[in-house]
């Protein structure tokens, strides 16, 4: 099953199981079914609760916040995550604040789905990774789509928390297959670490034999795997890959024993430079592992640049598998 199909089926199951679930967004109804076809079929099955909206990101998220305030569960699709900037006030100043600013806990079950990321040639305003812009907002959880995490469980976790949440969906994942049964290919296996919000752990032979540890959100999975494969075959360097579903707040505890055993920790993300998720994660890790780290944590992210449209230019700005491969090589020679 492809990742987009898994997400589609998770949404369908939610709508079927709970009459208080709404899905709102631009061009999401059939026959179009959304710009990336993630909502295909939903409006035909649930016409009153899957609503195509005008081009009004602020009002869409605001109305979803109103539904959530009234006790419903609302899921918004922002066509391109970049447009979430138009809904910043509703996300940050209304939905997230409302959970606690009235002096008692007000649960708001609201998910804002944001297709993000580049390598598709959509250009500077349709290719960004906006995760960093929403980091550190009280009562706003950030998740990222991954080929490991079943979206039925991810969406359920986001709604159960009773706080607004954003699901960042790297567009390159939609057409990839979901990994299953702990096996990725002839080389890599995976399992999950942590109970509350499981982190996928990808390893070679054994999960406790590795040189370096890469932490990367779901969208970087395939690029990281390609780099890890090359590092192993060419340099006999073995790496562990950790892919969290929830980026913020980040649950570090279950990962500490793993991270403590790394020659080097590398945090990889597609975000452009400056104020990144990786920097946030590194500052959480440092005090916990101070004295046990053998090298500084290495941050791998895209360049400090707008994201160009032309393929050869875009490729230069964004993190690619060879960027991660180079980081692994440097780690091995550190």
């Amino acid at each position: 099953m492809r990742v987009a199909e898994n997400l589609n089926s998770a949404l369908l199951d939610l709508l079927a199981a709970d009459e208080d679930v709404f899905v709102l967004g631009e061009d999401i109804t059939d026959p179009y079914g959304g710009a990336f076809k993630v909502t295909r079929g939903l409006s035909t099955r649930f016409p009153g609760r899957v609503l195509a909206t005008p081009l009004s990101e602020g009002a869409i998220v605001g109305a979803a916040g109103g539904l959530a305030l009234a006790g419903d569960k609302a899921i918004v699709e922002i066509m391109f995550g970049d447009f979430a900037a138009l809904a910043f006030d509703q996300i940050v100043n209304f939905a997230s604040k409302s959970v606690t600013m009235y002096g008692r806990r007000v649960p708001l079950r609201l998910i804002v789905r944001c297709p993000v990321g580049g390598n598709r040639g959509y250009g500077p305003t349709h290719s960004q990774s906006l995760q960093k812009h929403f980091l550190g907002v009280p009562n706003l959880a950030l998740h990222e789509l991954s080929p490991f995490h079943d979206n039925a469980r991810v969406l359920a976790e986001m709604l159960a928390a009773g706080t607004p949440a954003i699901l960042f969906e790297d567009k390159v994942l939609y057409t990839q297959r979901m990994f299953q049964d702990g096996r990725i290919d002839d080389l890599f296996r995976y399992d999950f670490v942590g109970a509350e919000t499981p982190v996928a752990r990808v390893y070679l032979e054994r999960p406790d034999e590795y040189d370096n540890v890469i932490i990367a959100p779901g969208g970087m999975t395939h690029r990281a795997l390609t780099a890890m494969r090359a590092a192993f075959l060419e340099d006999e360097s073995s790496s562990l890959l950790l892919v969290p579903s929830r980026l913020y707040p980040f649950t570090l505890d279950p990962l500490l024993p793993i991270l403590a055993g790394a020659r080097q920790i590398i945090v990889v993300e597609e975000s452009t430079a400056g104020g990144t998720w990786g920097a946030e994660l590194a500052q959480e890790i440092y005090p916990r592992l101070w004295g046990r780290l053998r090298h500084p944590i290495r941050l791998v992210h895209s360049a400090d640049s707008v994201i160009p449209t032309a393929a050869h230019l875009e490729r230069r700005v964004l993190v690619q598998d060879d960027t991660i491969r180079a980081a692994l090589r440097e780690a091995d020679h550190a």
Partner: peptide
């Protein structure tokens, strides 16, 4: 202006 879209969502619920 923030309340009007929220009020619209509540009105949809009602």
């Amino acid at each position: 202006g923030q309340s009007l879209p929220v009020a619209a969502g509540v009105a949809l619920h009602l």
